[in-house]
């Protein structure tokens, strides 16, 4: 992978993966010494938070779809509705 992609992978491993304790300690030391890296990490974390929010939106849509499939909106039977309407009209006109 290109250098830029390797860098994304490295940060991801530290932020989302399970780095060993020694690994994490070395990483913290590196961050303290490198404000630019610190800014990169912050930017990448912002992306993950954004993706989390977009994923949640998609999940909401999927749940709405599941609901619509399980409980399709009942369509009123128009014949019955018309007959009921006519009966009401006749009753009123008497």
């Amino acid at each position: 992978m290109r250098l830029e992609l390797e860098q994304l992978r490295l940060v991801e491993h530290q932020v989302l993966g399970n780095p060993s304790a020694a690994d994490a300690a070395a990483w913290r030391a590196r961050l303290l010494a490198d404000p630019e890296l610190q800014a990169d990490v912050e930017a990448q974390q912002q992306l993950y938070r954004g993706l989390q929010a977009v994923g949640r939106q998609q999940l909401r849509q999927e749940l709405a779809t599941i609901h619509a499939k399980l409980y399709p909106p009942r369509r009123r039977n128009w014949v019955r509705a018309t007959v009921a309407g006519l009966c009401r009209t006749i009753r009123w006109s008497r």
Binding site: Q46, L47, R49, G50, L51, Q52, A53, V54, Q57
Partner: peptide, 14 residues
């Protein structure tokens, strides 16, 4: 709570 946090990134994902 996390929901409102990152509205700005949302547009770029879209």
């Amino acid at each position: 709570a996390a929901e409102e946090a990152t509205a700005s990134v949302l547009d770029y994902v879209a």
